[in-house]
Design a protein around this nucleic acid. Sequence first.
DNA 1: TCCTCCTAAGGTACCGCTACCAAATGCAGC
DNA 2: GCTGCATTTGGTAGCGGTACCTTAGGAGGA
Lengths: 367, 367
Amino acid sequence: MSGNSRKRRGDGRPTIAQVAALAGVGTMTASRALRTPHLVSDALRASVERAVEELNYVPNLSARALASKSSDVVVVLVPTLTQHIFSEVVKGIYDGLEGTPLQVQIGNTRYDAEEEERLLRVFLRQRPSAVIVSGTHQSKASRQLLERAGCPVVQIMDVSDDPIDRIVGYSHVDAGYAATRHLIEKGYERLAFFTGWMHQRAEGRLRGFEQATREAGIYRPDLIFRVEDRVSFDLGSTMAGPNRRFGSHPFSSPGLGRAMLSDALDLPRPPDAVFCNNDILAIGVLFEAHSRGIAVPDQLGICGFNDLDLMAAAHPSLSSLRTLRYEIGFESVQVIRRALDGRPDDQKIRNMGFEVMARQSTNRNGG
Amino acid sequence: MSGNSRKRRGDGRPTIAQVAALAGVGTMTASRALRTPHLVSDALRASVERAVEELNYVPNLSARALASKSSDVVVVLVPTLTQHIFSEVVKGIYDGLEGTPLQVQIGNTRYDAEEEERLLRVFLRQRPSAVIVSGTHQSKASRQLLERAGCPVVQIMDVSDDPIDRIVGYSHVDAGYAATRHLIEKGYERLAFFTGWMHQRAEGRLRGFEQATREAGIYRPDLIFRVEDRVSFDLGSTMAGPNRRFGSHPFSSPGLGRAMLSDALDLPRPPDAVFCNNDILAIGVLFEAHSRGIAVPDQLGICGFNDLDLMAAAHPSLSSLRTLRYEIGFESVQVIRRALDGRPDDQKIRNMGFEVMARQSTNRNGG
DNA sequence: TCCTCCTAAGGTACCGCTACCAAATGCAGC
DNA sequence: GCTGCATTTGGTAGCGGTACCTTAGGAGGA
């Protein structure tokens, strides 16, 4: 008989069968003692726990996932890992999952819908317990994949009337509008809009900006600056480090903010205020203003977006629109946990809002 | 007979057996056609591929991991997700794994050795293909777990004579020394050291600072400022957002940099240069100097650490010590890939070095 | 006392894939 | 024609759990 020599050897780690044998119980009882202890008598549970301790048993997750068809994995797709915004969201997600058996699996879509689709296909193989995706602009195929994923799906960082399943975020149009209104109310009249790479949500903020300036009768399309227009800009700094490889998009950088302000000031009638689509641009704008001796806020108002720590600490302190990145991440997993616990929320849309942080950089004439 | 009704139903997705049946081959041939195509004849491989296409087959990763005892997961433990430094490392890791079947699993240790140990125990259940951990100060138990992990292990962001397996990073003592030497060579004489939370690597930089100042005979322990000393500092800003919950450590913030400079300037004999343990502190120091009308670099030299984009774009531009975060992440997975491919590197230690970026903020008297 | 109902415990057949072995095939050398 | 070796292909027994079903035993009611 080839019998025994034929056997595939395990990797030496104890299995639940060994635990059960040591505890003098059946394997099912051992399994139950670990997963649903209330269904097992105190005496047996104790002896199983003792056996686990003694053998230093750790369950094999693959076997569990295979047998139970559920993997305890939460798939999270974000467009970038290197922007502070998303790393804070991710931290909120991790913190929100603290104390649950759920594991996070992060995918980086690089702001690319095709890549998102590819990652979804790969990750859904694991039969995740839930999926979190960024924004609402999934491809048709991605949307279909998510609708059929058979698990809670949360879109984050935006709101929409037509979510795939749940959505947690805020309105970028409203946010852009509110920031622009703030500048207008402070008395600025020639408002510029600076933006790096125009992803979907950045577009929303621009729409809000356009709406507010149009309403006020001060809309000036020539004062809208996008990185795409500025082919002459040396992307050296933007493309350094993490962006160097694989042609990442030049989203923004402080250097870009400086260059854009430089361009804007060359116009015959330069802007008297700038709404920057993110705080990093705003910091660059501030430094360029410094270097040219332009007074902020009197000659130039500056408002950023997101309200990083940096904004309050700058000199002059920079106004910005505070978004709740961490909270969005945290809340999105609460939504998931409630759904997995069988008590899903009534409302599918969770608008987390935002706040205009008015600081010195827009406080013209001492306010 | 209960027979058929007893059967556990699958979840409807096609299995490799169905693929094989449709292709008219054995399951093993189908499996081989997908994983080791060169071992299968062209004809059969083609028909398996056709069947995969037709059924829209996706392999079940849990089953594969269970049968093959290898999960294609690379476990990555980092101390924080919200610092730019580590998100760039992580991006390098993702980019380096592009095109491989390997998946990343990130764990956040929060700079806590016990948490690291706990995460290791959890993650090692998955029998990962490789593990990446940050730094060299693992607990004894963690080290033992890693030594017995049975897969390549790479420590990153530091170097050490005694790595667990491989190590990719740079010497923080050398880096701190080099930055300090730069300040000394520029003619500064009363050097201060500002630091947020003192993790292991920050300690190394401080040792380099102390060594350089001692050698130059200008060591002044009273000019070393740590966040721990500064209980009076309002952590409001530092603890906002992601740090608000779960008592994260107040690593650093621009506000802390401002406060520290403020303290330092209150001394009877204030420093004439500051080496900041990270760039965020340095930016805060610059803003505080601005607000007080202190001339940088003539009255005060500033040098940061890591060389974020921000440093080159500041006004005046800020000197910093450039570290290769992205490259360390990228290289660490190359080390892993070579090891998994059976052609491991000869050298266990990979020192990626660093570079002093001399800019205006340390260019006293016009250089 | 007997029977039903409920709970705790256990037996066993899978989950879907791959390692291991065996068999079939093709071809060169004697 | 037969043997020996390399290359392809296939059968089958797991991998380590859990779902499903059965059984044992005690409580409660007629």
